[in-house]
């Protein structure tokens, strides 16, 4: 065993394993909880742990965005969907045994394949001396609006269009068609 006793490294390691354990347990709750609201809370925990991972990887800007969009937006949307479509007493029936077996088999097969692939592949790691850009937020911003080679301005605009389209689409889909008649009556 070779645990390096450099305190900075040690805290990093402890943080990694704590977050990993928490997020795996929470992810299991997400897929198995009978009460759907608890699954939503567990999803929030997984996503918060994800932000923690990003901080460990030194991408604090992405961690901030993850918290802002995922936890602040998506999880609350999901919680809303849960509130609108089920009640506190509604308990989901467990899946049938065949379905369970199928799911378990697929996920384990994927896990095994991926882990074998990782262990077989030799990844071209960057050298230790390589330095991350100091201000991730600034680098991301510059890259997103860069229209030269390697710039992302086109995908950026496409994403904004996608978001606009999804917002309009959501309004169209979720609108109650009966409301129109009521509106003209009053």
């Amino acid at each position: 065993m070779d645990i390096t006793l450099n305190p900075a490294d040690l805290t990093h390691t402890i943080a990694f394993y704590t977050l990993a354990l928490t997020s795996i347990v929470a992810a299991l709750i997400v897929v198995t909880a009978k009460r759907i609201f608890r699954a939503a809370v567990a999803l929030a925990v997984v996503l918060i742990c994800g932000a923690g991972f990003y901080i460990l990887l030194n991408y604090d800007f992405i961690a901030g965005v993850q918290l802002l969009v995922y936890v602040g937006g998506i999880v609350i949307l999901i919680v809303f969907a849960v509130m609108l479509t089920s009640s506190l007493e509604s308990i989901e029936e467990p899946p049938s045994l065949g379905r369970k077996a199928l799911g378990l088999f697929s996920s384990l097969a994927f896990l095994a394949t991926a882990v074998i692939a990782f262990s077989e592949t030799k990844f071209p790691l960057s050298s230790i001396s390589a330095e991350q850009p100091k201000d991730v937020a600034k680098a991301v911003g510059r890259k997103l609006l860069d229209y030269g080679a390697g710039g992302y301005v086109l995908p950026f605009e496409v994403i904004s269009l996608l978001l606009l389209a999804s917002v309009i689409g959501a309004i169209v889909v979720a609108r109650n068609p009966k409301r129109k008649n009521e509106g003209s009556a009053t």
């Binding site: 997020s23 795996i24 992810a27 299991l28 997400v30 897929v31 997984v46 799911g103 378990l104 697929s106 996920s107 384990l108 994927f110 896990l111 991926a114 882990v115 990782f118």
Partner: peptide, 10 residues
């Protein structure tokens, strides 16, 4: 990968 396969199961 573990998180991904849990997601597949779900």
């Amino acid at each position: 990968t573990i998180l991904f396969s849990i997601g597949i199961y779900g």
